[in-house]
Structures are given as structure tokens and as C-alpha cells.
């Protein structure tokens, strides 16, 4: 075995997760804050402008007073990219959940997780979280913490389209999902779309699409153009901030793609709220 393997303690991972949970919930991302601010300047409806100003004010209060942006501090989704030259001492899954427990306690954040989905007894510490592991080269550990509220999660949808449905069918499904969501996911939303893979892969792609910085596009011009077209169509719906009408229904439509089967065209739409919270760290 190589002597170059770096060792990291699981306690270090837990502490990092705890810190990221608090920051994600209290400090809105700068790109989202800027996008809300630019949207407020463009709105002609007084009510739409007022709502966006309130969301900006809310973000400032949250950061200054160390209060969560939203009381739905979410189910925590964690993406972990593990360097292959890294050894984690202890159980990484337990460490991540311990970090969530610590962060939600220390941050006075709401515990929103119930154990059995039908019995519905609160677990009392916001665990377990949902973890996606991946392996990358190097000796670092990248962690992305994305707490997801269910106002927006509940309005998300997945459909196994037929290849013959094509781009038009995909467009209809995405627009229908945003229209049905209306005011519920706390617009202006970010629309995360996953296209391809299997059913589960499309869903994960759509969630990862929400992590992308506002204003950035899919690397391929074809998909980048489709994202721009969808953003215009979504904003033309007029749902507006908080659903009270206006030009800003969405701050961005982000599509992630992956090869798929000859018989399929899976499409997942994961809707993110006005704050679409996520923070990352490399240790």
C-alpha cells in the first residue's frame, strides 16, 4: 500500500458538516442574492417588487441575526466526493449524520424529519440525511451540503418520456411542472432538470443542477440555448414572486444531461425555492 494515503478523522468531517448546515441555512449565496436584486429592479408590478425587496431584507436579517432564511430548514442532502488517495478514519456515514445533528442543534434549526413515513414520528435531530458518494482523484474530500425544503421538493416531478416525445415533449413536461407548482415552491424558483440515465439518475442530475451558479449554462450550446428558451417561457407564465404575479417566476433553468437507453427519455424536474441553499467545503 502506498505511503501517500492521507488520513482524515471522521470528527473533522462531522464538524465541517455542522458548519456547512448552519451557513447554508443562514447565509444566502451571493449569486442568488444578486439575481433577486436584479429581478427587483426589472419588475414593473409594485407588489412583485415589494415581495422581492422583502426576500432580500429577509436574507439580510437571517445573516445578521443568525436566523435561518426559512423555518423549513429542510432535509439535508449531502454530496461527498472522496479522493482515492484519502483514508477516512471511522464511519463516514455516521460522521455526516453526527454533523447534521450538531449543526441543527447548535443553529436552533427546525427538526423536520420523521422516521417511518406513515407513523410520522419526528426523529428529533433532523437525521438521517440523504448522502450521495462519488470518488475523484486526489487526496481531498469535497462536501456539498444542500438542505432541501419540502415546499419546493413536493412540487418536483419525474416522467419517463418516450424518445418520440423529443425536445417538445420535454419542454411541455417541464413547463407543466412549473405551472402546477404555482406559488407553493416560494418563487422565484430555480428549475433543476435532469435528462437521461435511468429514473434515479435523472432525479439526482436534477438535484445537482440546483447547485449550479446562477447565470451559468450547460457546456453544450444546444442545451444552453434550450435553458435560455425555457427561462423565458417560465417567466412569461406570470406566476411571479410569491405567486402574486410578475416577470420573475424563475432565476434560472439548469439542465444536466447524461447518456440514456435506446428506449427511454427520463426527465426529472427538481424545483428549488428562492433561496436554493447550498454550501461546500474541501478538506
Amino acid at each position: 500500500m502506498s505511503t501517500n494515503i492521507r488520513v482524515i478523522r471522521s470528527e473533522h468531517i462531522a464538524e465541517t458538516i455542522a458548519k456547512l448546515c448552519i451557513e447554508a441555512n443562514m447565509d444566502i449565496s451571493q449569486d442568488i442574492y444578486d439575481a433577486l436584486s436584479q429581478a427587483a429592479a426589472k419588475e414593473t408590478s409594485q407588489l412583485a417588487r415589494t415581495v422581492l425587496d422583502m426576500l432580500l431584507e429577509n436574507a439580510k436579517i437571517a445573516a445578521q441575526e443568525r436566523l435561518p432564511i426559512c423555518q423549513d430548514t429542510g432535509m439535508v442532502v449531502v454530496f461527498v466526493n472522496i479522493g482515492t488517495e484519502l483514508h477516512v478514519q471511522g464511519n463516514i456515514g455516521e460522521a455526516i449524520n453526527e454533523g447534521v445533528r450538531m449543526g441543527y442543534g447548535a443553529g436552533y434549526m427546525r427538526n423536520s424529519i420523521v422516521g417511518d413515513p406513515i407513523e410520522r414520528v419526528n426523529t428529533g435531530d433532523n437525521t438521517p440525511c440523504v448522502i450521495y458518494y462519488d470518488f475523484v482523484s486526489g487526496d481531498k474530500l469535497e462536501i456539498i451540503v444542500a438542505p432541501k425544503g419540502f415546499g419546493s421538493e413536493n412540487m418536483s416531478a419525474i416522467r419517463m418520456l418516450s424518445p418520440s416525445d423529443g425536445l417538445d415533449g420535454m419542454e411541455r413536461f417541464i413547463l407543466e411542472t412549473v405551472r402546477n407548482a404555482g406559488a407553493n415552491p416560494c418563487p422565484p424558483v430555480i428549475v433543476g432538470v435532469g435528462v437521461g440515465g435511468t429514473m434515479d439518475k435523472a432525479a439526482v442530475l436534477s438535484k445537482q443542477a440546483l447547485l449550479r451558479k446562477i447565470g451559468t449554462s450547460h457546456p453544450e450550446p444546444f442545451w444552453a440555448n434550450f435553458e435560455s428558451r425555457l427561462l423565458i417561457l417560465v417567466n412569461d407564465m406570470g406566476i411571479g414572486p410569491a405567486g402574486f404575479g410578475g416577470k420573475t417566476t424563475s432565476l434560472g433553468v439548469h439542465i444536466n444531461t447524461y447518456p440514456t437507453h435506446i428506449a427511454g427519455l427520463p426527465v426529472a424536474v427538481n424545483i428549488g425555492c428562492h433561496a436554493t441553499r447550498h454550501k461546500s467545503a474541501v478538506i
Partner: peptide, 13 residues
């Protein structure tokens, strides 16, 4: 009545 969805800190004030 509708409160502003997502503005939890503002409402707390």
C-alpha cells in the same frame, strides 16, 4: 392571507 414564502427570518421579527 398569504405570508411571503421563504421569508421566515423577516416573519420572526
Amino acid at each position: 392571507l398569504s405570508a411571503i414564502g421563504g421569508a421566515g427570518a423577516l416573519m420572526a421579527q
